[in-house]
């Protein structure tokens, strides 16, 4: 790992990364994977480094995943949740950033409901900033862990048929994923109700369809997205019952996919809305592998952004 192509201070989005950088993160994550299989799941890599987890939006999965990754790398981590942060007391984001900066953390992991907030923070602090999801904009570590999972199963991306189905409009996961998969040469299809499809989605160079049957047909990978009822998806279709009838992934519908298809979901799932329970838990599902890979990806990202690899080099 001495000839690292990684020189970035921040990980704000997949949009900024080259294919080479993406592959490098995936390779680095592979090397961290075995740490989680040890009886004592800890390496001293980030000992003495401070990581702040700044979550302005509720998150269980992503936050725990980052926290576990930090602890397994021996970093000192501190959590700020929205409820206890100054922002709710009226402190501006800029002041929050300046205060954090004054405490000299090495890395800041931020989740925020508004697009662009990690970018704003990154301009204000010397610490490396990791975007753990900014509104409907990007969620780069999710796309990276998805890619790691796909690579483990399919060994390649070039020409791979990946279909992403569901509430495209409100999803940061889909935006990071279409960027990443496009850079690595996969053939991406996005599918969803017309009322949940943002305009000009084709500009990403993806195929846009409006039926799940069409999306699943011949797919190597089917990635289901959560319908984000809390973000206004409710106005986009009459009922979750009708949504499931039109766009839910069922065993029947899955038959049209490739025989070795894998089913992914970034979680949390609405069972019976976008995916049937038996599919979520069925033999094609790699949903829990995604979660396991999440820890490895976040270890890799924390490691690369900490600059430790360059000090070793």
């Amino acid at each position: 790992m001495t000839d690292s192509p990684w020189t970035r201070k921040d990980l704000l989005g997949i949009a900024d990364l080259s294919a080479e950088e993406i592959e490098h993160v995936l390779d680095t994550a592979e090397s961290f994977r075995e740490v989680s299989d040890r009886p004592i799941k800890k390496v001293p890599t980030l000992r003495g480094r401070t990581v702040v987890n700044l979550f302005f939006e509720a998150s269980t999965r992503t936050r725990s995943s980052f926290e576990i990754a930090e602890k397994r790398l021996s970093a000192d981590s501190i959590n700020f949740a929205a409820k206890s942060s100054g922002l709710l007391k009226g402190e501006s984001l800029v002041d929050t950033a300046l205060n954090l900066q004054a405490m000299a953390p090495d890395l800041i992991v931020i989740r925020h409901g508004h697009p662009g907030v990690p970018h704003m923070l990154a301009r204000r602090v010397e610490a490396g900033v990791i975007n753990a999801g900014d509104g409907a904009h990007e969620h780069p570590t999710q796309a990276l862990l998805d890619a790691l999972t796909i690579r483990q199963h399919k060994k390649r991306f070039e020409g791979l048929k990946v279909s992403i189905v569901g509430d495209i409009e409100h999803s940061r996961v889909v935006r990071s994923n279409v960027l990443l998969l496009g850079k690595l040469g996969a053939e991406v299809t996005v599918a969803g109700p017309r009322t949940l499809m943002p305009v000009d989605m084709e500009s990403y160079g993806v195929r846009v369809v409006h039926s799940i049957e069409e999306a699943v047909r011949g797919a190597d990978v089917v990635m289901m997205l959560r319908v984000q009822l809390e973000r206004g998806a409710r106005m986009a279709f009459p009922s979750t019952r009708e949504y499931f009838r039109l766009f839910g992934l069922t065993r029947e519908r899955l038959k049209a996919a490739k025989r070795d298809v894998i089913i992914m979901h970034p979680g949390p799932m609405n069972r019976g809305v976008e995916i049937a329970s038996d599919v979520a838990e069925g033999r094609y599902s790699v949903i829990l592998e995604q979660v396991a890979n999440g820890v490895a990806i976040r270890m890799a990202v924390l490691y690369l952004l900490s600059g430790v690899h360059q000090e070793i080099g």
């Binding site: 697009p115 662009g116 509104g135 409907a136 935006r175 943002p198 305009v199 000009d200 990403y204």
Partner: peptide, 8 residues
């Protein structure tokens, strides 16, 4: 295109 890409 850009509102879509930026998630705004």
């Amino acid at each position: 295109e850009w509102s879509t890409r930026l998630g705004l």
